[in-house]
Simulated assay, not measured.
Amino acid sequence: MKISIKREDSHEIYDVPLQDVTLLEILNEIKNKIDATLAYSSGCRSSVCGSCAVRVNGKEVLACSYKAEDGDVVEPLLNVPIERDLVVNMDKAYGFNSKAKAYQSTIVQNIKLSDEDEKRNALQSDCILCSACYSACPVYAVNKEFLGPFSLTRVWRYVSDKREENPKDKIDNIQMDGVWDCTLCNACTLVCPQGISSKADIEKLRARSVMFGYSDPSFGSFDGGFGFDGSPSF
């Protein structure tokens, strides 16, 4: 099986004598028996830690769960600095969680959660921070400060928790470089190994923003072809 791996500015092709195995097994084989200099990240080998996320043939996957095929082209994640080969620096990406206040800040005491309450944001709690969605997001091409899919999903996780005492504070905080910057392209959802739809969560955050008096700022510069008095503007 031949696998092409991006290393610096070129691709190196490895011929590996394995079949019907995961990409992580391929990478381990290369590291242990062919080229000890190859750098990549891995951890749990069970699709839980998210550390082995890479791009294969232009799509984000977890190396420990992706079944490798002959001719695969393996590259590091996008939108993050590359440390070496397939190893990337996630500091800025993870830093958006803090910037977005993607955590429970104030808790209303003595509130009991029903089964329905627990199910409302259970899926969002399954995020493993693999950053596949961060890599797939096209918004970073024009806005490097965009809070991003996984951070906004985590904001919804807490905004939708009825124990959160001040959800408006979180909504206020995601108006700039946040919910309105998303193009709703759904690329994040398609690559999430946990099946989380950040697009759907961002849509819900937009709806909650409207409830708090916000609206899409781009609407302010578009009058639909009519003047403010209702007359045509052409």
Score class of each variant (00 low, 15 high):
4 S>G: 03
32 N>I: 08
193 P>L: 09
1 M>H: 04
18 L>D: 02
128 I>S: 06
34 I>K: 03
27 L>N: 07
200 A>T: 13
25 E>Q: 14
48 V>E: 05
18 L>P: 00
203 E>S: 10
221 S>N: 14
45 R>M: 11
127 C>L: 01
113 L>Q: 02
63 A>K: 03
223 D>K: 09
59 K>S: 07
3 I>E: 01
22 T>V: 06
74 V>Q: 02
15 D>M: 02
219 F>D: 15
37 T>P: 00
34 I>H: 05
145 E>H: 10
162 K>N: 02
52 C>D: 09
198 S>V: 04
234 F>V: 14
56 V>N: 04
95 G>R: 12
209 S>Y: 10
96 F>N: 14
111 I>K: 11
177 D>C: 10
80 V>Y: 00
20 D>R: 09
113 L>P: 05
108 V>W: 07
223 D>L: 15
145 E>S: 15
188 C>W: 01
99 K>H: 06
187 A>M: 11
120 R>E: 06
40 Y>M: 06
88 V>C: 05
88 V>W: 01
10 S>R: 12
137 C>F: 07
68 A>D: 04
112 K>E: 14
106 T>H: 11
83 E>H: 00
44 C>W: 02
138 P>M: 06
90 M>D: 00
75 E>L: 06
135 S>Q: 10
221 S>I: 15
74 V>F: 07
153 T>S: 15
206 R>F: 10
210 V>P: 06
229 D>T: 13
57 N>V: 03
4 S>C: 03
172 D>V: 03
186 N>I: 13
94 Y>I: 08
30 I>S: 03
120 R>Y: 02
173 N>D: 12
184 L>P: 03
49 C>P: 04
197 S>I: 13
86 L>W: 09
215 S>C: 09
107 I>D: 05
188 C>F: 06
61 V>H: 09
60 E>T: 09
177 D>N: 15
93 A>Y: 05
178 G>W: 02
175 Q>K: 01
78 L>C: 08
169 D>E: 11
40 Y>I: 01
73 V>E: 11
159 V>D: 12
127 C>G: 08
13 I>W: 04
212 F>G: 04
121 N>C: 00
150 F>I: 07
63 A>V: 07
18 L>K: 06
167 P>L: 14
155 V>S: 08
168 K>F: 07
15 D>C: 01
139 V>K: 13
107 I>S: 09
